[in-house]
């Protein structure tokens, strides 16, 4: 075979290969520019973060507004300190409530934002004062069971 034929086939092969890589990146991986947008960091303290993990989404009204950037433990106050990277496109009042929620019974754990009424907005390095810890299912069940048991003894 001639050299030109090799060149043609190899060129087609390379184009097909890179198209496949692009397909994997965009159609399968759902790559978007979201990662490269600017963010600002705020901190929130929780008594218990349950199953919250790094990179967990932060949602307000169900829309993705940021991600969990860092989780560490404050050894003085015995609380979990969660750093959230929020998209600069979205601004929230200072008295926003951050609560740890679960989508469905077994779904992923995320942080939900409920906006408050303060006129000032959260800025880089701020602390979210109003937080709501994760609901631990075992505690909920045991509370319910002890409550039932207590009711039973009262009746007698």
């Amino acid at each position: 075979m001639e050299r030109k034929t090799y060149d043609l086939w190899v060129g087609l092969f390379v184009i097909a290969g890179f198209l496949a890589l692009l397909f994997l990146g965009f159609q399968v991986g759902g790559y978007s520019e979201e990662r490269s947008t600017k963010t600002y960091n705020v901190e929130a303290r929780f008594e218990n973060i349950g199953g919250l993990k790094m990179k967990a989404p932060v949602k307000s009204a169900g829309v993705l507004v940021g991600r969990v950037n860092d989780i560490h433990f404050d050894n003085k106050k015995f609380q979990a300190v969660v750093t959230l990277a929020l998209d600069t496109r979205y601004q929230f009042p200072k008295d926003t409530t951050a609560s740890i929620l679960t989508s469905g019974l077994l779904g992923e754990v995320f942080i939900g934002f409920d906006a408050g009424g303060d006129e000032k907005n959260l800025v880089q390095g701020d602390n979210i004062k109003l937080t709501q810890s994760a609901v631990v299912l075992e505690r909920l069940i045991s509370q319910f069971m002890f409550g039932k048991a207590a009711e039973g003894t009262d009746k007698k």
Binding site: V14, L24, V28
Partner: peptide
């Protein structure tokens, strides 16, 4: 050079 392109094409046709 060929191996990563072939692997990408394999995944592509698999999906």
């Amino acid at each position: 050079f060929s191996m990563p392109l072939l692997a990408a094409l394999f995944s592509f046709s698999g999906i």
